[in-house]
Amino acid sequence: MSIQHFRVALIPFFAAFCLPVFAHPETLVKVKDAEDQLGARVGYIELDLNSGKILESFRPEERFPMMSTFKVLLCGAVLSRVDAGQEQLGRRIHYSQNDLVEYSPVTEKHLTDGMTVRELCSAAITMSDNTAANLLLTTIGGPKELTAFLHNMGDHVTRLDRWEPELNEAIPNDERDTTMPAAMATTLRKLLTGELLTLASRQQLIDWMEADKVAGPLLRSALPAGWFIADKSGAGERGSRGIIAALGPDGKPSRIVVIYTTGSQATMDERNRQIAEIGASLIKHW
């Protein structure tokens, strides 16, 4: 067993022997301040990774656009098919120029040779490549099948209805392509620590998230040296922004954090800054 596999296998073990965790309302004060600064709703939840206990939450059962955070769930569904012998990570998928959609920095470079399922998941999570996500959605049967996968996990809230990039439209009061912070946090925890996926697939999923290259201005910008984070960000229309993450000190994750916002007129930089400040408060009061 590799060191990384050992780390993920012992996530519940280490967490069980940690000192009790206590909620700190100071972080919620910052979440509410972010709402004021952005002029928009902000949803927040913080779960203990081992027990699933909610440590703090704000608007945990209000719907927010998922945006690209759905790509972690998508690759979880792909990995479940791999575990069941219905898919192979090494299978190569070929596609054409007509398949390319807006923001496809990886797939646009491989029109000639195609990409493997493993490479597509890596591109979808680490670079948020939209064509990679659409190609992977095709392998599982489309958005409705991802929703069905989530329902089978016990998540009857999260739903995907459309493809990239239309799913980022974020129309107010439109339930399409949305989740709730509580539902997303619980589902992410199941994917990373539950028995739904094999140990190898859980490790692969967290490795992809740990290698995320496009979430630097968010929670990662607030992390002290030595902290662990595996995350996936999302951005959408109407001032929408979000991030889902597993993080913790001492090089291992111990909490799940989900943050979503929508309806702001603020710039992307300002949305990023507010999420980073929430992260800084979380870490300060850990």
Rank of each mutant, 00 (worst) to 15 (best):
H24M: 11
P25K: 15
L28S: 07
V29Y: 12
D33T: 08
D33G: 07
D33F: 08
A34L: 11
D36L: 13
L38W: 06
G39R: 08
R41I: 13
V42D: 02
S51K: 06
S51W: 04
K53C: 12
L55W: 09
R59T: 03
R63E: 11
M66D: 01
S68D: 00
K71T: 02
K71H: 00
K71M: 00
V72T: 09
A77W: 06
L79V: 11
R81T: 11
D83Y: 03
A84P: 04
Y95D: 02
Y95F: 10
N98A: 07
L100I: 15
E102C: 05
E102N: 11
Y103I: 05
P105T: 15
P105K: 12
K109V: 08
L111D: 14
T112N: 14
T112M: 13
T112V: 13
D113Q: 09
D113Y: 15
M115S: 05
E119G: 13
L120D: 00
A124M: 15
I125Y: 00
D129P: 00
N130L: 01
N130E: 01
T131I: 02
L136S: 02
L137K: 02
I140F: 14
P143S: 13
P143W: 03
K144L: 11
L150D: 03
H151C: 07
M153F: 08
G154S: 08
V157K: 10
T158S: 09
R162G: 08
R162V: 02
E164T: 00
E166S: 13
E166N: 15
N168T: 13
E169W: 08
A170L: 06
I171G: 15
N173R: 09
M184G: 00
L188F: 06
R189T: 07
L192I: 07
G194C: 08
Q204C: 15
L205A: 03
L205D: 00
I206F: 06
D207P: 02
E210T: 10
A211F: 15
A211T: 10
D212C: 05
A215F: 02
G216R: 10
G216N: 06
P217W: 14
L219C: 03
L219N: 04
D231A: 12
S233N: 00
G234S: 13
A235I: 04
A235G: 08
G236K: 00
E237K: 12
G239W: 00
G239P: 00
I243A: 05
I243E: 03
I243P: 01
P249E: 06
D250K: 06
K252A: 12
R255S: 04
V258N: 01
V258M: 04
Y260L: 13
T261A: 12
T261H: 15
S264G: 13
Q265P: 08
M268L: 11
D269M: 06
E270Q: 05
E270R: 07
N272T: 14
N272Y: 01
R273A: 12
Q274V: 10
I275H: 02
I275W: 03
A276W: 09
E277T: 06
G279W: 04
S281Q: 13
W286A: 02
